[in-house]
Design a protein around this nucleic acid. Structure first.
Length: 578
RNA sequence: GCCGGUGUAGCUCAGCGGUAGAGCAACGCUUUUGUAAAGCGUGGGCCAGGUGUUCGAAUCACCUCACCGGCUCCA
């Protein structure tokens, strides 16, 4: 175990030990080291955020006592006596394998623990950690259990590392897409429309439209059939697909109209299957790649909503590839090629901006995962093989699969380090069975197809959130809702500015005229704060030279150039998406 | 949904039992500007909504709503 992990884990013990001094009746859960710090789950009443300082202060005192961490094995019978007033510890003792358990003592505090501490608290710099927040967390991570209070702390080996981390977090907060969404006027929420239902402003809609066109054009080039299907369907469709029992919780309730029961669709797969099934299919038509910018509706619990990352109505760049079993590998490769192509356009790098996750099922959980061990093994192996042969680095995660099969998820982190799935590729062996997705093979026999669910750029809302944060609002020219700010120095130069603007209309450059009666500095400031990539300033000198003065975002004054040169430069940047 | 926190003008915030304030933004006038905030003036708030406590509530209590941090869940 690395030293820093030992420090973090030891701090968790010290946290518990300080809490027990102030709240002797508190019941302890568990307290592990985590990325950047540690936490401890504790059942205690009336913990106020301001108490954290008090606890932190006491922890620092304990550190200075040079306490030793002393490990001892204890029989379960002895351990049960030692922890008789700690019900959660007793539960852990009962569930642990073997006849003995580990205990660790520091000062007067004894904890049930398998180890991994510093030898002495003198090894911990008392200024290298900080208690950061209190939160609720279910005991053993199940919402059926009681909710405990979780105290989080961040910790490093040195005080400087801690300071650097805190400063970095502060900087990162400025990238928050919710903040930038408001400042740059990209999207809003309305209490009257409802939570989790974003409204895109003109500027946000421009970004969205560019992304949507990019996806549709690229997918059509790559052999996808782009379609439109309705956002409603009879609930029977989802009963047949098998989604209903698994997804009921996140579906909107049934709307009864005439004799029919309709729902807002939570996913598009069964609609696409119906297109496939509209007539008999030959193997010559496969792979049958149906794609759609599909609006979907999911009831996410209120506390799960976050800006554009988790919403209740979203548009997925969705597709279902119906193909022969022997083509699955090459199709998945093609999908990953497309995903990496898109990621590259956005400047997203593997292992820094995103990482691959192989999301597996669990054979023992037939409630969550369709029961068919053989199919699961087969599908999981195929996905693993594809990733290995591509030499992509990836990690495997159990219990992250869809109910109908395993998936490759492209995971991205938001500004605060929280990870979500951006794009996904899923192997489905259930859908083809339930909908009888067949085709006639070369021998004239009926054969069952396989379905690959995939998304090239994920949900438009979510990728927008990631891109806003990735660029910190400084969108590349091709994505910028306003590409050029046209700034006449005074009213006298407005006529010239309008002439220039005409050219932007002709050449499809998105511009904004800054013709307010304000100082030049003020207008530059406003345009810079809107993070517009180019500011064109024009006054007497430019009119005389028949030119424009160009100021580039972040780089300052580039000097004068003829408009045609500037247009060429911008067009080039738009085209190359640089 | 659960645990905790927050909610005062369009935005950022002050006021925290005695009846609402600042800066920026908006609007008007003056100014006609040379690379990140010109000057003066004007308007704008049921203090998230509701119900209580009180002589009196933005301020205290309770409920509801929204948002934030986690948990659970997920594209």
């Amino acid at each position: 175990m690395e030293n820093i992990e030992k420090i973090r884990h030891s701090l968790a013990h010290l946290l518990a030990s300080a809490v027990m001094e102030f709240w002797p009746k508190a019941k302890l859960g568990i307290g592990p080291a985590i990325e950047n710090g540690f936490y401890y789950d504790i059942e205690l009443k009336d913990l106020k955020p301001e108490d954290l300082q008090k606890i932190e202060g006491r922890m620092k005192e304990l550190i200075k006592e040079n306490q030793k961490f002393v490990g001892k094995k204890a029989s379960k019978i002895t351990a049960k006596k030692l922890f008789k007033s700690q019900p959660y510890k007793l539960e852990l003792i009962k569930d642990l394998p073997g006849k003995t358990v580990g205990t660790y003592q520091n000062g007067k505090f004894l904890d049930l623990c398998k180890g991994g501490h510093v030898g002495n608290t003198s090894e911990i710099d008392p200024n290298s950690f900080k208690l950061t927040k209190i939160a609720g967390a279910y005991w053993k991570g199940s919402e059926k259990n009681k909710m405990l209070t979780r105290i989080y702390g961040v910790a490093f080996e040195t005080a400087k590392e801690l300071q650097d981390y805190l400063t970095m977090q502060q900087e990162a907060e400025k990238r928050d897409h919710r903040l930038l969404g408001e400042k740059l006027d990209l999207f809003v929420f309305s209490d009257l429309v409802g939570k989790g239902l974003p409204l895109f402003t003109e500027k946000g809609s421009t970004i969205r439209r560019i992304l949507e066109r990019l996806v549709v054009d690229e997918e059509i080039k790559r052999g996808y059939k782009h379609v439109y299907t309705p956002e409603l369907a009879k609930v029977d469709l989802y009963k047949k697909s098998g989604h209903y029992p698994y997804y009921k919780e996140s579906m909107y309730p049934v709307m009864k109209i005439d004799e029919e029961e309709l729902i807002l669709r939570p996913m598009t797969c069964p609609h696409h299957y119906q297109l496939y099934l509209s007539r008999p299919r030959s193997y010559k038509e496969l792979p049958f790649r149906i794609a759609e910018l599909a609006k979907q509706f999911r009831y996410e619990k209120s506390g799960e909503l976050t800006g554009l990352i988790r919403v209740r109505s979203f548009c997925l760049a969705d597709s279902h590839i119906i193909c022969q079993k022997e083509n699955v590998e090459s199709e998945i490769n093609k999908v990953l090629d497309l995903i990496e192509y898109m990621a590259n356009i956005f400047g997203l790098k593997q292992n820094t901006d995103y990482r691959y996750r192989l999301s597996l099922g669990n054979r023992k959980d037939s409630k969550k995962y369709y029961k068919d061990d053989k199919a699961w093994n087969y599908a999981e192996n195929i996905l693993r093989k594809v990733l290995k042969e591509r030499k992509a680095s990836f990690y495997e995660a159990e219990k992250e699969a869809a109910f109908y099969g395993p998936k490759i998820d492209i995971q991205m982190k938001n500004f605060s380090g929280k990870e979500d799935t951006a794009f996904t590729v899923q192997y489905d062996f259930v859908g083809p069975k339930r909908f009888e997705l067949h085709f006639t093979n070369s021998k004239g026999e009926k054969e069952e197809a396989v379905v690959i669910h995939r998304s090239s750029i994920g949900a438009i809302e979510r990728i927008m959130a990631f891109l806003i944060e990735k660029y910190a609002g400084n969108f590349p020219v091709w994505l910028s809702p306003i590409q050029v700010a046209v700034i006449p120095i005074s009213e006298k130069h407005l006529e010239y500015a309008n002439e220039i603007a005409k050219q932007f209309h002709i050449y499809d450059v998105r511009f904004m005229m800054y013709d307010q009666n304000e100082t030049l500095s003020k207008k530059i400031r406003e345009a810079e704060m809107q993070k517009i990539p180019y500011l064109l300033i024009m006054g007497d000198k430019e009119i005389a030279a028949n030119a424009v003065s160009v100021r580039q975002r972040g780089k300052g004054d580039l000097g004068q150039m003829p408009l045609s040169n500037f247009l060429e430069k911008v067009k080039k940047e738009i085209q190359s998406k640089s």
